[in-house]
Nucleic acid binder design. Structure first.
Lengths: 391, 391
DNA sequence: CAGCATTTGTTCGTTTCCGCGACTAATGCG
DNA sequence: CGCATTAGTCGCGGAAACGAACAAATGCTG
């Protein structure tokens, strides 16, 4: 759309082929042609270009049992990848994730106290250097960082990450300086939504809302028209602070009666007994406990969640709502209960055909989302992969 | 983006030229080249094509006092236009609006009772036929209809327009059948937002929220990334049903404590005295009355509005909020009051740099929005204007 | 197993459309 | 009145996609 020359057509076609492979997996050149609507000769030329750039590998023709000449296989290169970095209160995860969304390497470092940004930058860059990605044949395009908090996406400034106790920390700039790689920092829920869109419960859905409930609170992200809705500076999607009651309970930014103030994992956990529990155990423990106390608490939580979701449905008219973390457990406990509560709060036409489902992706969700964020510029302009820049 | 051939480049370039003229007004061919970044010869060819299609008029070169050869002027054709139809409880407005957003003809018919859909269709098609648009040299591309209610945009089915007491009315299909013209039906606030985006307080702003307060309630629309956010079926933007209090007051769809239940023009009007008042009189009457009763009511209304806007800011991270109708009066009464109340409810980073302004466009706002919605397909594919179809 | 239909790869000519350069035209300025 | 500046016009070249013609590789059928 920018210049309007024929090279843009080429770029768009290269991107279309790459995207087809990313969502559809490896396939034959003929399939690629059908999927992208391009001509045989065009596809051949495009694939040849991409192979030359090292982004895909052309394989020998394989017969698949049908008549006709077998078509060459085309596979995403297993060497093109990006780093994913995910700092949490108790650990830092660094991974190498390929263009095919496979997690190739993964290192987790536990902290005994909340890390500072400088510590995270230092540790992450050390780990990335130690991984020897280039020596192992990976061609790294950049670094994607998933941060539990508000991030100014343009420069990766972490505005406020309450759980990490970070405020106005220049994470993007620091990490870029330490590694000399392009760095993309974003909110964790947003990156999770991207991963769900491409490989999870959001596949093929162009309007959906993702809401994740964790120990630290509730985060969300919006996909509209197939694109992540970031807003003016990337702060969009903060559904946790939506008002759901007139109570005085405040969330961690001081907003009273908000979703995050009323719906907490902590409260449910206290009813179940143990002080700590990993997400899977929490889910099964909650679903197993049908006591009155738990049922009442779940009902109240569902009611509050439904009010927030009602706003979401009325304002955004999504076709699907993805619930992650303990919000998925809340749904599973009584799916119809949540739906009924929501229907009382949403405009009937907007509510029609809205799916409420659990998010699909598990542990690697954020790593895939973060890495793919870093791979995005390459996918949008494959020709930029010229010299396999290894600096 | 679809096929990936060189004809797409042509189409995009034609669109770019047309859009430049729409937002920038008539200009010289040289300016057009600078604005669109295209080459001199390319612009000449594009303009020549558009002139051949009858979409622009090429004028004689005019000297503007600067050195160098004068450039040809290019003006949007004054004959290309669309119908705008706007049914309200007490009147039906039909207009002819040009590509240049000028309202060329306007007919308003008053009702003595709430009209049915069939009556509106019948009257609108009669009026449009009587206007003799084709005979007057207009080339009409379609009909845009602004409806105060929920509209399924794909086929123009009015799902629920409470004030008109319409439910499940096939307005789009009926009007298309009666007129044999392409019909585009949409929510009035959405069309107003489009007009504000192109010609009003939303110019050059790619993320904004438009909220309009009228006698019938509160409607809204969202522009994200420069595009109207319609959601899955076009129902998005319903900000009036956002929860703002724990009270039991319900709005017209039964949602308690919603913005529309708590913030009403009616309530303010009752404090000012008269039973009926046109918007302009209401605005000046409200701003003139600094009594304690009014001040307290305004403060309460502002507080509730701020809660809804807080949700909007947190979820959408807009760069501007446009207030229309009596919500603009509410803002003007005490701009700082609203802003302060909002800042208590919004995440500080998301709130940074958010403008809160009044909508700019007046009476013709919806007519321009509706007609331009009908002109959009033409702008997106100028070459489709082949035979100046007059059926 | 030999021919045939089917499907795909390959090559090459055609078409479209943009940019560029050379030349011409029209203006203001000194 | 010449010169600099700016824009229109025309022709050429390059990029890229498509389609046609041909070759290659497979399954199917008699």
């Amino acid at each position: 759309m920018r210049k309007g020359t024929s090279e843009d057509v080429r770029r768009e076609n290269l991107t279309a082929v790459l995207r087809a492979l990313m969502v559809g997996g490896d396939m034959s050149r003929a399939d690629l042609g059908r999927l992208t609507g391009r001509n045989r000769s065009t596809v051949a030329s495009l694939v040849s270009d991409l192979a030359g750039l090292g982004l895909v590998d052309e394989q020998d023709p394989v017969t698949d049992g049908t008549v006709g000449r077998p078509s060459h296989g085309v596979a995403l290169s297993s060497s093109v990848a990006a780093f994913a970095v995910h700092p949490e209160v108790d650990a830092l995860t660094v991974a190498i994730v390929g263009l095919d969304a496979q997690v190739r390497r993964k290192v987790r470092h536990e902290f005994d106290r909340i890390p500072t940004m400088a510590e995270v930058v230092h540790l992450a860059s050390t780990v990335m250097a130690a991984m020897g990605a280039e020596e192992s044949g990976f061609r790294m395009t950049g670094i994607g960082v998933a941060v539990p908090g508000l991030v100014r996406t343009v420069d990766g400034l972490v505005r406020n990450a309450p759980h990490l106790q970070w405020r106005e920390e220049p994470l993007g700039a620091s990490l870029a300086e330490a590694t000399s790689l392009p760095v993309h920092v974003a909110n964790d829920a947003q990156l999770g939504a991207l991963a769900e869109r491409d490989y999870g419960a959001g596949r093929g859905v162009s309007h959906f809302v993702y809401i994740n409930g964790g120990a630290s609170g509730i985060g969300g992200a919006i996909v509209a028209g197939g694109d992540l809705l970031g807003g003016a500076h990337g702060y969009a999607g903060e559904l946790g602070h939506t008002p759901v009651s007139g109570s005085d309970r405040v969330d961690n930014v001081g907003i009273p009666g908000s979703l995050e103030a009323e719906v907490t994992r902590e409260e449910l956990l206290s009813l179940l007994g143990p002080d700590h529990m990993d997400p899977e155990s929490f889910d099964s423990a909650l679903l197993a406990d049908r006591s009155d106390a738990v049922a009442a608490a779940v009902a109240r939580h569902q009611r509050h969640l439904a009010i927030a979701l009602g706003t979401v449905v009325n304002v955004l008219n999504p076709e699907r709502i993805l619930l992650g973390g303990f919000l998925a457990s809340l749904l599973a406990y009584n799916p119809q209960g949540l739906r009924t509560a929501l229907e009382a709060r949403a405009l009937a036409p907007a509510m029609e055909g809205v799916d409420i489902v659990s998010a699909q992706l598990g542990a690697n969700l954020l790593l895939v989302g973060a890495a793919h964020r870093a791979l995005e510029p390459l996918v949008d302009d494959p020709a930029s992969m010229s010299g396999a820049r290894t600096d």
